[in-house]
Design a protein around this nucleic acid. Structure first.
Lengths: 134, 134
DNA sequence: GAAAAATTTATAATCATTCTAAACTAATAC
DNA sequence: GTATTAGTTTAGAATGATTATAAATTTTTC
């Protein structure tokens, strides 16, 4: 079950208590919390955790490919479990973040880069939309 | 010629000296400067300009649709003249920002949002690529 | 279980950005 | 054209997110 834990071990990370707690927070989060929110959730599990550790650990996990950074343009970094690649649609009215996948779109991006003489190494797409009322 | 100037007037903006200078900087910039760089360029034209004015004026111009914000994920906002919509490809090795347009891609984004019951009001796409050596 | 190495904590520092209050400039009223 | 008013700029303080630092603590190694 604890597949993120396995991934950490495989990456040679020492699994200290704060790291385990932060990992738990990530696993329990179905949304896309920012660092401060992750800190708040971690503190609920262990009051002694410090914000600096949250920042440092998140960076560590990101570099190890355990989590991925998401930037919706509001000046804060948000995080989610790394996994199959997907994109985000942000509901401009509620702020809700909806995930989606579209292979055709992926392929087109790769193609566009290629046409300009580039190998696509990363890409980021965010759609901002307003819910259509029927 | 001074079409940005016209646009400001049409928006009812008072065209003070600092605003004129910042507008000039924008017109003379073919790249995508961040605020600090715009400030540096403005100071060359008028030593007395303050960074706060640059920030405030940029925000004003953005709200008036004179310029557009670009976020390449390095924690600083960059700006460019508003105009026909285009996307950006960032050369991960040199940091160079290359603009491109692709109507098919645009249409697909609109379609994807629609399929999820959303009207696309904004969108952001950045490709990060490595130059292919032949 | 002691010594060495890595991690965490608390806090200070930094960076981008926004706010504030006083000074200045432009627009309007006379 | 000058006084009044409204809007703008300046300088610097404040804020929010993030990173760095040094001392304390924990983990690993022997």
């Amino acid at each position: 079950m604890a597949k993120l834990y396995e991934k950490c071990i495989k990456n040679g990370l020492r699994m200290t208590l704060p790291r385990k707690i932060i990992l738990e927070v990530i696993e329990d989060s179905a949304d896309h919390p920012d660092v401060d929110e992750m800190y708040r959730r971690a503190v609920e599990k262990d009051r002694s955790i410090s914000i600096a550790t949250v920042y440092r650990t998140i960076k560590l996990f990101e570099e190890a490919g355990i989590i991925e950074r998401l930037d919706i343009g509001d000046g804060r970094s948000r995080y989610e479990e790394a996994g199959e690649h997907h994109e985000h649609l942000i509901d401009v009215e509620s702020g809700e973040i909806i995930e989606f996948q579209n292979e055709e779109l992926e392929e087109m991006k790769r193609q566009v880069a290629l046409n300009m003489g580039y190998e696509l190494v990363d890409h980021r797409l965010e759609l901002f939309g307003k819910k259509i009322k029927k």
